[in-house]
Amino acid sequence: MQNINLYQREGRRGGGPQAGHLLSGCLLIAVLLVVHGAWQGWQLHAAREAASLAEQQAAQAQARLDVVKADYREPVLDARLPTQLAEQEAENRELQRLADHLQALDAQRSSGFSPLLQALADRHPPRGLWLTHIRLQAGGSELALHGLSQDQELLPLYLQSLGQSSAFSGREFARFDLQRDEQDLLRFLLSSRAGKEGGDE
């Protein structure tokens, strides 16, 4: 009878990591850790320098603020200011009124006498009253009207009609003369100027 030995001893395989490889890996990891630590240390140093600079700037700003606070004086309202302001406003209003008046005079001069003459023509009564002389001066601001009327009641109506015209609105006559002549007609004079010069022709 023949004996068969089924047990065989297996040899160790050589496929595992080599010692040189492990050493190289450990060295690479160590180098990476050193580089990372150096990078972190540099960032920490830069952060500390930035914080130190910020603290210096804050201290300088605080010092400047303290100087400004030391020199600051609380403003005090001048008791004369309201009175001066009221006087200035009154002067400004007066200047504005003067400017408006000058503008109105300039408008009258630029427009000429045509609006006044047109108003006299439009408001003239159809009969019983005539204008014999019209005097316009100073751009129309000075006006004198000479005329005749058959009826004394026509003159107030005529003046009322002129007052309704925009060209004569607000105009006042300083002189009014009325007398009856030898032909039993009423001679009248309306002048914006008082005194003898208002009747000069």
Rank of each mutant, 00 (worst) to 15 (best):
Q96N: 08
E94P: 00
A70W: 05
Q137D: 13
A79M: 01
E49Y: 06
Y158C: 12
H133Y: 05
A99H: 15
D181R: 15
R175W: 06
A54E: 04
R48N: 03
M1H: 09
A167S: 15
D177W: 03
L65M: 14
A63C: 01
S110L: 09
Q150R: 14
P17G: 04
S169F: 06
L190G: 03
S161I: 03
R193T: 01
Q88F: 00
R180G: 03
D106K: 14
A104D: 14
A70R: 09
L148T: 05
H101Y: 05
R193W: 00
L27H: 03
E89H: 14
D66E: 11
S141I: 07
L129N: 09
G15I: 00
L159N: 12
G37P: 05
A46C: 10
A19I: 03
H133M: 03
E172T: 02
E142I: 04
W130E: 11
H45D: 02
C26W: 00
E49F: 07
L136R: 08
G195P: 00
A138I: 08
L145S: 07
I134T: 15
L186T: 04
A86C: 12
L6R: 15
I29R: 12
R48S: 02
E89V: 14
L81D: 08
I134W: 10
E201N: 11
Q150I: 12
R123H: 12
G195T: 01
I4E: 06
P126C: 02
H133N: 11
V35P: 10
F188E: 04
Q164F: 03
D100P: 06
Q96R: 12
A138C: 13
L32F: 08
L53D: 13
Q2K: 03
Q88G: 01
R135Q: 14
E89Y: 12
R73E: 01
Q179M: 09
V67D: 15
G112S: 11
G20P: 04
Q179C: 11
R135L: 11
D184L: 07
E74T: 14
G147T: 07
E201M: 08
G14H: 14
Y158T: 06
A107V: 11
S24Q: 04
L145V: 05
L143S: 10
E89L: 15
D106R: 13
Q57L: 10
F188N: 09
L145I: 07
P125G: 08
L102I: 02
S161Y: 02
E49T: 09
Q8C: 01
T132K: 07
A138W: 08
H133L: 04
Y72D: 09
I29M: 11
R123G: 12
D184S: 13
Q164K: 10
G112C: 13
G170P: 06
L44D: 05
K69E: 05
D177N: 10
S191E: 06
L23R: 09
D151T: 04
F188M: 13
Q40I: 10
P115V: 08
R180K: 13
I29S: 11
L154D: 08
P156E: 13
S161W: 04
A59T: 09
A167R: 12
